[in-house]
Design a protein around this nucleic acid. Structure first.
Lengths: 117, 117
DNA sequence: ATTATATTTCTACAATTGCAAAAATATCGA
DNA sequence: TCGATATTTTTGCAATTGTAGAAATATAAT
């Protein structure tokens, strides 16, 4: 991933509604949700949500497909993966121990505040 | 991490100069760099860099300390950790297999294009 | 064809952000 | 104290972004 794409992806996520949408779609899984349902869930007008979804899609963070009149949106796992990898590239001066501490506790499941890693 | 802080952190990273600075400091390690050296490395005026560094620090992504006239900046590993965890929270509907695929190949070292995971 | 539904594109405006020169602040050495 | 160095704060402007109503487009049902 190049810098320009990373900036676009981060900018797409750096907005309240879009960050919520992205996390919602991450949690929803590969089947995704239809555009209207996303707009309703976030309580914003369809035209506004359309803009946000387009920005997320252009950033490579979500993908869409059509079934008849409905347009489905789902998280693009490869996209978020590429972004995270770009952020962490060559970090810790290559020290595996420091890296392990940093990455080990990143999980897909919720991390309750008190939970030990 | 709450949503508001996550948006601030993502916005801090969603800018060309700041993203480069963050990655530079991630790679530099805990000793960090002095402000002037960062400005010089990025080829921007000190006042501009001061703004960028302040934004990164306010977002919890870098930390600073002073030794005499010099101010050191270094990556805040806890901050980036919290952000990544927030992004991935409850993803994949809790399916560990999907999560494993998503996270396994995120490494601190460089990932050459051809390298198998 | 006509109507209804789902979504996007167009449009306009308020609010935010990036930028860097100039001035101000902090620390050190003489 | 005075001058020199390092960094931040102030200031102002151009550019970008978020927002949502209205119009346009795509699909389906009658």
């Amino acid at each position: 991933m190049e810098q320009t794409k990373a900036v676009a992806a981060l900018a797409a996520l750096a907005q309240d509604t879009r960050l919520s949408v992205f996390r919602l779609l991450m949690q929803t899984g590969p089947d995704g949700m239809i555009a209207g349902a996303v707009a309703e869930a976030m309580d914003v007008p369809p035209s506004t949500m359309s803009h946000h979804l387009a920005k997320l899609e252009q950033a490579g963070l979500v993908m869409s497909w059509r079934t008849s009149r409905l347009i489905h949106y789902a998280a693009d796992y490869a996209g978020i993966h590429a972004l995270l990898n770009f952020l962490m590239a060559d970090c810790c001066r290559g020290d595996p121990n420091a890296c392990a501490d940093l990455l080990s506790a990143i999980t897909c499941s919720a991390s309750p505040e008190g939970a030990g890693v």
